[in-house]
Write a protein that binds this DNA or RNA. Structure first.
Lengths: 201, 201
DNA sequence: CTCATTGGATACGTATCGTTTCTTACGGAG
DNA sequence: CTCCGTAAGAAACGATACGTATCCAATGAG
């Protein structure tokens, strides 16, 4: 009787890959990004360093893949009755998503990919994935239908604005973005600028 | 005749401290934050590791001190004639200040101080030093005098807004913030929200 | 059944860590 | 001018993780 399951059989392909990504994500959650080592990931996944290095050339690439593998997708937001409450619900959902990611991970990835434009772009794409998720769009459409605003055609900058402010808040303070901060962002910045902008004559 | 000046004499106190901070800053500029090693700093400063560790317990503390030691202060902004051009000038100055700091440094410091609240707060204080510098205040005062806005009494959130957006831009893209981005920030966000906000009755 | 592929174990040399030990230069007190 | 406490500086420590090379065996395709 072996004291520990000696790796029932030798894994390959998808199965092995998922095991490594799961191990990497578990390591990030447990020890944080700066203390994550390839050796620890290999040990946790019950494999060896070369197997990992064959697939991901750097720690950053591995962890980015692990993050994409582990984070859930975006569900639709229910209609909460007003633009303001829709926005609150949206940003609270963003905040909850941030909570799934250790606070040192995003800045860590930015730092380590800084001198490699390709990986830096990959990190940036992940960070700004809100844009691709088109998560703001339905909120604006409902607001137009209610007559609260006049158009969904806002500039890219404006569409980014709430998310940029959330990301900034999260990175700077390194803790969950509070409901109070969300309310500030919406009431003092987002709603005023949405109200002011599409006023054509 | 010695091939290299063998450290003319043994330095102490202020002089030594400045030499170390200068060496640390030079290293950051040369190799970037992730590749900066205490040994390299010691070598460049012509001293030894224990001397550094006696003063700063971590790499992050050393580099933060080096940054504070090396960055210039804030000069007053000349009156450029309008709120918009004043804001443009202000954010361009912020952008130039960002250019003095390698793009991987701030996220690197955030990452490494993440699990030590005290150092994290020190980093945060440095990052948000715009607030303490009260650099926005005179711009608003002049705008009030011109009749462009009605009050300088804006909320802390609004006072942070331009800087938060600049910082976000800089961290995400890891390159100098373009004049186009500055113009977007001002024309699509800051000015509209300033115009919309202090409208009482 | 055979064989090319690739997982997995191991070990290598290197780099840097943070600390310890020891010597010696400096500079203030008397 | 001398003495002596303080701190600089050199060297070496064990530890850890790096990224790579080598080797063997399990696997699955044909």
């Amino acid at each position: 009787m072996p004291t520990e399951a000696p790796t029932a059989s030798r894994r390959r392909g998808e199965l092995l890959e998922r095991a490594i990504l799961d191990a990497a994500w578990a390591e990030v959650l447990e020890v944080g990004y700066p203390k994550l080592t390839m050796e620890a990931v290999a040990a946790r996944a019950q494999t060896s360093k070369p197997v990992i290095y064959r697939r991901w050339r750097t720690r950053a690439a591995l962890v980015l893949a692990a993050m994409q593998h582990s984070l859930p997708g975006w569900d639709d937001l229910p209609d909460t009755g007003s633009l303001r409450s829709d926005l609150i619900a949206l940003l609270q959902r963003v905040a909850h998503r941030f909570d799934l990611v250790p606070g040192d991970l995003i800045p860590g990835l930015i730092t380590e990919t800084f001198s490699d434009p390709e990986s830096a772009a990959a990190v940036r794409a992940q960070i700004t994935s809100f844009a691709r998720a088109r998560i703001l769009r339905p909120v604006l459409q409902r607001a137009v239908a209610r007559g609260e605003i006049t158009t969904t055609e806002i500039s890219p900058r404006l569409a980014r604005l709430p998310f940029d402010l959330m990301r900034n808040e999260s990175m700077i303070y390194g803790m969950p973005v509070s409901d109070a901060a969300i309310a500030e962002i919406i009431d003092e910045v987002v709603l005023p600028v949405l109200a002011a902008t599409p006023r054509e004559s």
